[in-house]
């Protein structure tokens, strides 16, 4: 027998706006975001290992495919779509674009969000810091070299924004 489940309503902040969602208890965060038309977080490996489903919850990067939607109730959720919502790319996005730090682009939102969090916590990471921080994100096109360059470039951009 396949049991049926009752829907529940959750309220949370999504990309700066208060929202409400009807969800089922076994749905994950990525599935719920799709109902909001947000596809930047995408399930790939399904095991939290590739980072394609990265979402920021209360300022922390999480694997959306391993996060129950029910646990989002009351939380502050930011997806990659929010970073350029004002029409301007964030310094990290700009750096990814300029260094060509992606090929197929499927893993890119995850990397971009992780780099945002990395630079928030550690504005001047060494290459070793970068490699450690991004070790849970996979890029099958292997743009890793360019991604490291992009992180360095983004760190510079953010520094000059802050001082300029």
């Amino acid at each position: 027998m396949v049991p049926t489940a009752a829907q529940q309503t959750i309220r949370f902040t999504l990309n700066g706006k208060p929202v409400e969602a009807r969800i089922l208890p076994h749905h994950n965060l990525v599935e719920m975001l799709q109902d909001f038309g947000l596809f930047g977080a995408r399930e790939s490996c399904g095991q939290g290992l590739c980072g394609c489903c990265t979402v920021l919850v209360n300022g922390n990067a999480v694997s959306g495919c391993l996060y129950l939607a029910a646990f989002i109730d009351g939380a502050d959720v930011v997806t990659v779509e929010h970073l350029a919502s004002a029409g301007t790319l964030s310094p990290v996005q700009e750096a990814f674009l300029e260094t060509g730090a992606f090929q197929c682009g499927f893993c890119t939102p995850g990397f971009v969000l992780m780099v945002h969090q990395l630079l928030d916590r550690n504005p001047e990471p060494t290459e070793e810091d970068i490699r450690h921080y991004l070790s849970g994100n996979l890029c099958r096109c292997a743009s890793y070299r360019e991604i490291i360059q992009a992180v360095r470039s983004a760190a510079e951009k953010r520094k000059s924004c802050a001082t300029g």
């Binding site: 799709q34 947000l38 596809f39 930047g40 977080a41 995408r42 997806t79 990659v80 779509e81 970073l83 350029a84 790319l89 996005q93 990814f96 674009l97 300029e98 060509g100 992606f102 682009g105 499927f106 890119t108 939102p109 971009v112």
Partner: peptide
């Protein structure tokens, strides 16, 4: 030159069949 679709890819807006409903 950067890829023509670079902006869509860094903003998570690039179209994949994966997203289609």
């Amino acid at each position: 030159i950067p890829r023509l679709e670079a902006r869509e890819k860094v903003t998570g807006r690039a179209e994949y069949i994966h997203n289609m409903r």
